[in-house]
Computed example of a mutant assay.
Amino acid sequence: MADEGNVLSNLGTAPNGADNQPVAGVISQYVKDLSVENPKAPESFNWRSQPEMDVQFNIGANKVSDEVTEVELRITATSKTAEGVAYIVELSYCGLIGMRNMPDEQMHAFTYAEAPRILFPFARRVIADAVRDAGFAPLLLDPIDFNGLYIQQLAQRRAEEGAAAPAPATTEPSGEA
């Protein structure tokens, strides 16, 4: 029972004992960093103008070992009104993702599309609770299509690489025989 907590061991053993099937799973998830600013409290609680929301997110990955990668969702939510900034919430929410026996392109897709999809609902709840705890109505972030964004960014990167590639050399006839 020593391997009871090892997600990769539990998921990836074939009936014949061979360990050759692709395996991926979330080992752990956690808040790495959380910052909540309420710079104009208590005045901001009396503001009546409609706030403007700015939500930014980014995905990062850090290889921890051959089989484990830390995937990080960085989310910043800023609420501004004509009177000033009501609040700023910055969250770094991470998951340790175990992957084994997967081709590099599948590992990349799992790291930047599937893992963020799995982690996002938990990060969304942390943001909502942080905004509520700052004294405002909870901020419920809309779902994000991480797979669609991943495919879009791959297509954009391929288009940029195609445009940056040197044009094939052409030879023009010299007119001499």
Rank of each mutant, 00 (worst) to 15 (best):
K63H: 06
D33C: 08
V26A: 07
E37N: 12
N38G: 15
K63L: 06
R48H: 10
D33R: 09
P42E: 06
V55N: 01
M53A: 07
D66R: 05
S35C: 10
Y30D: 11
W47D: 01
E52Y: 02
R48A: 13
G25Y: 06
V55G: 01
V31S: 07
V23P: 10
E43I: 10
G25H: 08
N46G: 13
V31R: 05
S49W: 01
I27H: 05
S65N: 13
V26G: 05
F57S: 04
Q29V: 11
E52F: 02
S35W: 05
G60Y: 01
G25D: 09
A61D: 00
S49Q: 04
P51C: 01
K40L: 15
N58M: 01
Q56H: 06
L34K: 13
S49M: 02
A41I: 12
V36I: 11
Y30I: 12
S44V: 15
S65C: 11
P22C: 08
N58Y: 00
N62C: 02
Q29M: 12
S65R: 11
D33F: 05
Q50G: 09
V26L: 12
P51A: 02
Q50L: 08
P51Y: 02
N38E: 15
D54F: 00
N38Y: 14
S28M: 04
I59F: 02
D33G: 10
V26T: 11
K32L: 03
F45N: 14
S49T: 09
Q56A: 07
G25L: 06
V64M: 03
E43Q: 14
P42N: 09
S65P: 13
R48S: 14
V55F: 00
P42L: 08
A24D: 12
E37I: 11
N38K: 15
K32T: 09
G60K: 03
N58S: 07
A24V: 14
D33T: 11
V23A: 10
K40M: 15
S28D: 09
N58D: 05
Q50F: 07
L34Q: 13
S28G: 09
K40W: 13
P39L: 14
L34G: 14
Q56V: 07
W47L: 01
P22M: 08
N58L: 01
Q50H: 09
S49F: 01
M53R: 06
